[in-house]
Design a protein around this nucleic acid. Sequence first.
DNA 1: TCCATAATTAGAATAATTCTAACATAATAA
DNA 2: TTATTATGTTAGAATTATTCTAATTATGGA
Lengths: 137, 137
Amino acid sequence: MEKMLERLREKKVKATPQRLAVLEYLRSGYIHPSAEEIYKKLKPLCPSLSLATVYNTLEALVDAGAVNRLTIDARRTNYEYGRAPHAHFLCRVCGEIYDMPIRRAGAAVLRGHKIEKTWQYHQGVCRKCLKSPQKKI
Amino acid sequence: MEKMLERLREKKVKATPQRLAVLEYLRSGYIHPSAEEIYKKLKPLCPSLSLATVYNTLEALVDAGAVNRLTIDARRTNYEYGRAPHAHFLCRVCGEIYDMPIRRAGAAVLRGHKIEKTWQYHQGVCRKCLKSPQKKI
DNA sequence: TCCATAATTAGAATAATTCTAACATAATAA
DNA sequence: TTATTATGTTAGAATTATTCTAATTATGGA
């Protein structure tokens, strides 16, 4: 946690109570909540908290590398504490997200979950944008 | 294309002009448009087309296995023609999506694109839902 | 402590997606 | 073919996740 605070300081992200609450909540388990879920969970503990702050905070924490943004579920964006790289599994019945080991694609059962589809997503800067000096990268 | 029509017939998906137009558009290139983009492209060719139909059609085509739904970009859902499995790359500067070969995670340059982050997503039915007989799976 | 900057807040605005209900079309039965 | 039924299409309204706005408040450094 101390390391994380240092990392935030380096990125000029102020360690406010709201941000620490969000970060601590994400760190508290292998969970993948949406912004709304985080807000509902923390609101009783931090009554002044607003949903906009949760969104702002998540953005700041993602930018600082402390939190991962998951786009596995088209209905909402989910977030997790930034641990070692791993894959994710979304249940198409209940919507639950599970952590998974990274592995090659292919239908199978892994950790008891029936895998029906697999995607691999990369993000970065494309070759066009790498060449165009007008946009800040 | 004939194979695809058969597959649709099997799934009881009627081959309407709107559906064929969407499928043909997706098949016409290695493209990853959003519902809105598909609508704007096809509206001049098919003036009665509505955006709701594009959404309905995409849902039917995804269910039939003819089209893939991509959740790489949190701002919108993208779609592609169902070809052989491959990975995707999202440029964080311009938002363009590129097809990529499947490979192990790790930062690198691939096809000229600078990869900064990688995710692997699986979808299916989780072990809990596999066991619960009340929900239809 | 004071100050400048950055963060928080509530509520309004936006935009992607889904829903609704009327109408149209296609498939099936008679 | 004609009638019947099921399915698909449509426009516009509704919903909902997310972003924006502008006023207020808190933070960290001097």
